[in-house]
Computed example of a mutant assay.
Amino acid sequence: MSKSFVLRAGERGHDVIYSDGSASSYVAGHPGSHISRESSFNFHQYQDGRPGFGTVRVFGDEVFNGAGCGYNMHPHHNFIICAFVLEGELTHINTAGRGMVDQLRQGDYYVFSAGSGGKHCELSISPENMNAIYLWLMPGQLYLPPSYHRAHFDIRTRRNRIVQLVGDADGALPVAQDLRVSRLVTDRAGRFTYTPRTPEHGVYVFVAEGGATVNGAALARRDSMGITGAGALALDVPDSSDIFFVETAMLDDARIRAWEKANGADLLD
């Protein structure tokens, strides 16, 4: 039997973090610059509310507002962090491997696996605001070597089909976890089917733009839905929609607490 929940856009957690005051060492930018964050799940400084979904701990819809706004250089251990740029330009500096400075624009995305330890910095240097979807994942194995991969989703040539961006498909960015991220951008109405690897996998569906009816549930812009135990997801999608699918192995709260006790909750940051 399938189980599901619907999270409306206005039900997400909401934070505004300014570049001055107590957060100035963490948030970059000129005075008055700020990060606005809409969070689907709760984790540390993110919203209080619904816990993570499977291996997903954070699903953040973030906007860097103002010149130079972003996150100053800061460390992570073991977490896998993905970013999908929807608007603007993201300058991403990271220490994986020999390190690199990357410029990401609309359609670009990355997977940064912090592993045994890494640092990164994310800034919106251009005058326009930057909007990205951030995804934080628990790793399948601790202390792997840090790694960084990036790619581009061409909206013009990959319309009207579900395309896997992260996971085990050819051309998808690799990730050390039982997880797949896919995207559907449409310019005409249609019916689509998303089939998870097994019914035991959960799928989190996020409507970035437009709308969709998913297994009978109507979702508008920035609405989302999590579903487990379903053999397939049937989507009726109007034109001009942009939809993300995050498929993950499911972990119940008891298994997560046991995992954290065995490995140390402080290892995930």
Rank of each mutant, 00 (worst) to 15 (best):
V85M: 03
L90N: 02
L142K: 08
S124R: 05
R161D: 11
D108R: 06
I162G: 06
Q141N: 12
H92K: 03
N94P: 04
F84A: 06
E89P: 15
K119V: 14
T193I: 12
Y204S: 15
D178I: 10
V207F: 03
S116Q: 10
I162R: 04
E200I: 05
I133P: 12
F84R: 04
S116T: 15
R105H: 09
L123M: 05
M138G: 11
Q106N: 12
Q103Y: 10
S113Y: 02
L135H: 05
S182F: 00
Y109P: 09
H201K: 11
R161A: 14
K119E: 08
R161Y: 11
H92I: 04
Q177P: 04
Y134K: 09
Q164D: 08
D154K: 09
G202Q: 00
I155T: 11
M138R: 15
F84K: 04
I125P: 10
R105T: 08
L86G: 11
V185W: 03
Q164T: 11
P146N: 01
N129L: 11
T95D: 08
G190F: 00
L142N: 06
D154T: 11
H201N: 13
F153T: 15
P199I: 01
V181W: 01
V166N: 05
F112H: 15
P196T: 02
L173C: 07
A189G: 14
V203C: 05
L184M: 07
L142S: 05
I125Q: 06
T195E: 12
S113N: 15
G190W: 00
E122K: 06
A189E: 07
A132T: 09
V85D: 03
G107W: 02
L184G: 01
Q106L: 07
L123I: 05
R159M: 14
G140H: 12
L86V: 15
F192H: 04
S182V: 06
I93A: 06
D168F: 10
D178S: 10
D170S: 15
Y204K: 05
A114P: 03
M100C: 11
V85R: 01
G167K: 10
H92D: 07
G115K: 00
V163F: 10
I93W: 04
N94A: 08
M100K: 12
M130T: 07
N160I: 12
F206T: 10
D168Q: 14
R180Y: 13
G115E: 01
S126Q: 15
P139C: 04
F192M: 03
R158V: 09
D154Q: 11
Y148V: 04
P139R: 03
L137W: 07
H120T: 07
L165H: 04
R156G: 13
N94Y: 00
R191S: 11
Y148R: 00
T157L: 09
